[in-house]
């Protein structure tokens, strides 16, 4: 009974959120954009292999993908308590240690955003009931908590890398 109530509650909230975002879409004070690029290994003049971001035109299984989320304050007031959450896209695997974001606390979820934790604290429960430390490939979502205020006209970016399965 309680569980059913909860599900109804969650779906109602989701509906509320989606209608809100539609109504706000006309003039959001913060502009949020997501960009995808492919990372290809190139060998520089010194013989070192480095990744270079190119347009995501030709991506096949195994390729490395760079996602960049840019947020910019178009309003006339400072914004704070900014939290960006991003599900790991379908058919991809998060690459360990690739999430970046200045002045941000980065946490992960292994249960579609129900609970969040650090790389060290996250656990997953296996089919046989045993619990093990979560691996990067277990992550379902990433979250950046931006610890500063975003001043008017200021723009920042966070990013992470994934591999196409």
């Amino acid at each position: 009974m309680k569980i059913i109530k909860k599900i109804i509650h969650v779906s109602a909230l989701a509906a509320f959120l989606s209608t809100m975002s539609v109504s706000q879409a006309a003039a959001p004070p913060i502009e949020l954009s997501s960009d995808v690029q492919e990372l290809v290994a190139v060998v520089d003049a010194n013989g070192k292999s480095q990744f270079k971001a190119v347009a995501a035109d030709e991506i096949v299984p195994g390729d490395r993908i760079l996602y960049t989320t840019t947020f910019k304050n178009n309003g006339d007031k400072a914004s704070d308590k900014i939290v960006i959450s991003n599900p790991i896209p379908n058919n991809t695997r998060f690459l360990s240690g690739t999430a970046t974001g200045e002045n941000s606390v980065i946490t992960y979820s292994v249960d579609n955003g129900v609970s969040w934790g650090s790389v060290q604290s996250l656990k997953v429960k296996l089919k046989d009931g045993t619990v093990r430390a979560a691996e990067a490939s277990d992550y379902t979502n990433i979250r950046w908590e931006y610890r500063r205020s975003l001043q008017p006209t200021e723009a920042k970016a966070v990013s992470f890398q994934a591999q196409l399965l």
């Binding site: 913060i30 947020f71 914004s79 900014i82 939290v83 959450s85 058919n91």
Partner: peptide, 19 residues
């Protein structure tokens, strides 16, 4: 393969709608 980010924030201490 699609990706969408969601941002929540506050202005002047008041929580605003997600973007």
């Amino acid at each position: 393969v699609e990706n969408t980010a969601t941002l929540s924030y506050s202005v002047g201490g008041a929580a605003q709608s997600d973007i």
